[in-house]
Design a binder for these strands. Structure first.
Length: 783
RNA sequence: GGGCCUGUCGUCCAACGGUCAAGACGCUAGCCUUACACGCUUGAGACAGGGGUUCGACUCCCUUCAGGCCCACCA
């Protein structure tokens, strides 16, 4: 291998080899133990940055390690094209709305549109070298995902775990659509804070006087000395006359406004909480387009109604104060419209009674890192509402439900007919009451209702049975930000449908930060795109960066880590050159007799043992470090120590050299899969008989290659050589310069090795005055 | 407001409660040594502050300060 290291050429060639040999294929017929990974489906939103590369590389380290350890690795890939970002992406690129196109056609459009992105994603992930079986790919809007989501829902209905209830929904009056919290953003708006006199003692401050007709209660803080005495009083709402009660709640800030707040259905999210918590009456005064539907103000837009109400209040002398303020309001991120709250019927999954079960499930998962469990526990402990799984949107997986027009009975689709779209399909049978006229459910499911089924989807759950080799899955890898969503909801589904925790281990990755340590955001303009980074630096180098920071820690994208990865690859390349020139038989290494060989083999065994233990704990950083430390030491010392032997054609040195380098390559293979495989192909494929290093065996600890005495003796010899090397440096000698004589005191073996390694004419036992640090060995050195 | 994480050479990042606190990038000084100058060998350089526990603390506890994240809140 006379050519120099060229990553783009190597990576292209090796990627082709992997594709041609299909080495990541999961074999359902294999007798090997299965290691199954619940790979996170990335959101299809048109962007892959180095953060994605980091988290997918980190799980890939594990997948590759497990494969080399002899597992039958089930490592699928999913595309999340069910979410809002995908919807927005498609709407933008086609300048249409999902609503106008209709659900079926929109989903079809998404599928064809995202095909392009999926191909692009696949290409990038393949460049990164993610070792997934692409034949197991799925999409979260695909037929399987639709069927399983709907089946899960039907099963939950049959278990009496669902119910439908009117609840407030965030609503955009301009686009006349429900919006999710994700789509909200803050906007600072000027507004007027108006003090309204309700009675002699009660004056409330509000920015929304037009909501007076929807006022259902008044709140004060129970610890507010000034106002606490009002609790329990009843008062009539000015202009509109309904009687409301003053209640106590700690969420009221006594310092804000008058310290007295009105609760309307609904002005903001607190109103919703109060409405739920205190079972308040519901007064709807705004319609879907944001117009008032109440009394004299009927038909007016909110802002117009507001001025009219203020006028009327003033006319009666009830406005006792007015102040211009700036405040944060929630607006719809797409159109900047201030959002309102409407009441809609929602489907819920009832699970609040199961908190203890979910906490138990959390205990059964092995968390990596451990502290991530606390986030899960906090979330479960803090749960206050059941899981609302319906969304008033057009794009998504429909509920497989109709309602009888005559008796209102809910009619579920037949399990065998899934997936269905109730909007253009009929139940296929009559209602209990005899009617065959139905109203279809128009809502779609929350995306988590689908994402939560990925373990079931992977295990081909059919409602009863699933592939027990795959499920419960071995590993759930994901980032920490969605523990409360994806991880938790998956636990919920696993509990309901299988009674089992869906995985054994959870592997929680951190986020990538920009080189300055700032989070990467589109708006900050600091996103480092994946493809460019790979083309510029090589996939091995970017992956190496991903191995440097510990699991769960955020990591900034540092040039110097890329550089270090590059140096590592170059070093391996150059060592490979040296090994090739001195190629031996790795299988003969265990027969080594030379002390330096026995020493490096023992050291290699310790490194293997360490890297293996680290990997088994999902500490890939520790594994990589164990490999690196050993490798660089091996290069700088062992290689130099044996040159005098290899130059003479000593075969035993070549055997050890070849064996130890192979072990090192294998320890690095999960991290830098391209360069290690390229070298493997050139030097070892013929003798090892694996088509790729990635389907070869992980180095095992071999007792024949570890000998404590040889190791300790070797350490003393090595330290002596290193000391002489330093002495040469300190005495302005070239490191290969010849020394006339060294007398050694306190070490009787390996003197020939010292002489050979350091180019010393004569090494003899004797007396010395220079102490080798950390030893009792003394030397006398003569130039 | 509640919870969690993190503070170590200029920078990034390690260290079962026990050597001289490791390594990488950068910097310094030597060396073209038959794998590699994309290299080798040197040198300088750090435990955020304050309390405690301990024979002994970077490590455990409390606290202050500084970052970050999640949740809640924003009338």
């Amino acid at each position: 291998m006379a050519d120099s290291y060229n990553f783009s050429e190597i990576e292209e060639r090796i990627a082709k080899l992997w594709r041609d040999e299909d080495i990541y294929r999961y074999d359902p017929k294999s007798k090997k133990e299965v290691y199954s990974i619940d790979t996170p489906p990335p959101t299809v939103s048109g962007l892959i940055h180095v953060g994605h590369v980091m988290s997918y590389s980190q799980m890939d380290f594990i997948a590759r390690y497990k494969r080399m350890k002899g597992y039958n690795v089930f490592y699928p890939f999913g595309f999340d094209n069910n979410g809002l970002p995908t919807e927005i992406l498609v709407e933008k690129t086609h300048n249409i709305t999902a609503e106008k196109l209709g659900r079926e056609r929109f989903i079809a459009l998404v599928e064809s549109e995202t095909k392009k992105f999926m191909d692009m994603y696949k290409e990038v992930w393949q460049k990164v070298g993610i070792a997934v079986d692409w034949s197991l790919a799925y999409s979260t809007i695909g037929k399987d995902a639709q069927r399983i989501s709907q089946l899960s829902f039907i099963k939950l209905c049959k278990m009496d775990r669902t119910y439908r209830k009117e609840t407030p929904t965030i609503w955009c009056p301009k686009e006349k659509t429900a919006v999710s919290q994700m789509e909200l953003k803050d906007k600072v708006l000027k507004s007027r804070f108006i003090n309204i006199k309700f009675s002699k003692e009660i004056t409330i401050a509000t920015t929304r006087p037009e909501l007076l007709p929807a006022c259902v209660a008044i709140f004060v803080n129970p610890d507010d000395k000034k106002n606490a005495k009002l609790v329990g009083k009843k008062v009539r709402v000015p202009l509109f006359g309904q009687e409301v009660t003053v209640m106590a709640d700690r969420r009221v800030d006594p310092e804000k406004g008058t310290g007295v707040v009105m609760c309307c259905t609904f002005g903001d999210l607190t109103d919703i909480d109060w409405y739920r918590a205190y079972n308040l009456p519901l007064k709807i005064i705004i319609d879907e387009s944001g117009a008032i539907i109440h009394g004299d103000y009927k038909g007016m837009k909110i802002k117009d109604a507001r001025s009219k109400v203020i006028e009327a209040l003033k006319a009666e002398g009830l406005v006792t104060g007015e102040k211009e303020i700036e405040h944060n309001v929630n607006v719809h991120e797409r159109c900047n419209t201030e959002i309102e709250f409407l009441v809609k019927k929602q489907w819920y999954v009832r699970y609040l009674d199961l908190k203890e079960k979910f906490l138990d499930a959390g205990k059964k998962i092995k968390w990596h890192p451990e502290f991530m469990k606390v986030r899960y526990d906090n979330w479960v402990n803090g749960l206050q509402w059941d899981w609302a799984i319906s969304r008033q949107r057009f794009y998504g997986i429909p509920f497989p439900v109709w309602y009888c027009e005559k008796c209102g009975e809910t009619m579920l689709a037949e399990e065998g007919s899934l997936p269905v779209n109730p909007l253009n399909q009929k139940p296929g049978k009559k209602c209990k009451c005899g009617s065959d006229r139905f109203v279809p459910e128009g809502d779609v499911m929350d995306t988590w209702a689908t994402s939560s089924t990925t373990p079931l989807l992977n295990a081909k759950w059919d409602g009863e049975r699933y592939d027990k080799r795959i499920y419960p899955m071995s590993l759930r890898p994901q980032a920490h930000d969605i523990i409360t969503f994806w991880l938790f909801t998956s636990v919920v589904k696993g509990y309901f449908h299988t009674g089992l925790v869906p995985w054994k281990d959870a592997f929680i990755a951190g986020h990538a930060l920009d080189p300055k340590g700032q989070p990467m955001h589109k708006s900050a303009g600091n996103i480092i795109e994946a493809r460019g980074a790979i083309e510029k630096n090589g996939a091995d180098q970017v992956r190496y960066w991903a191995s440097v920071s510990k699991l769960g820690e955020d990591a900034s994208f540092q040039d110097k880590d890329i550089k270090t990865g590059h140096k590592l690859a170059v070093k391996m390349w150059n060592v490979a050159n040296f090994v090739q020139m001195n190629m031996g038989d790795p299988t003969r290494a265990a027969k080594a007799t030379n002390i330096i060989d026995k020493w490096i083999l023992s050291k290699a065994m310790m490194a293997v043992e360490n890297a293996t233990a680290r990997f088994d704990e999902y500490d890939f950083t520790g594994a990589a470090r164990a490999a690196s430390e050993f490798f660089w030491y091996f290069c700088d010392n062992y290689l130099e120590f044996i040159k005098h032997r290899t130059y003479k054609g000593d075969k035993t040195a070549a055997d050890t050299l070849s064996a130890v380098f192979l072990m090192t390559l294998k320890m690095f293979a999960p991290f830098v899969p391209y360069v290690t495989d390229e070298i493997y192909q050139r030097l070892y494929r013929k003798t090892e008989k694996s088509v790729s290093i990635h389907v070869s065996e992980w180095p095992e600890y071999n007792g024949k290659m570890f000998d404590k005495k040889s190791f300790e003796l070797g350490e003393r010899i090595a330290n002596t050589i290193i000391f002489i090397r330093q002495w040469k440096h300190n005495n302005q000698m070239a490191l290969n310069g010849e020394l006339a004589q060294v007398e050694v005191e306190g070490l009787t073996e390996g003197l020939d090795e010292i002489a050979g390694a350091m180019n010393i004419k004569k090494v003899t036992k004797g007396k010395g005055d220079l102490t080798v640090p950390g030893t009792e060995i003394k030397l006398a050195i003569k130039k």
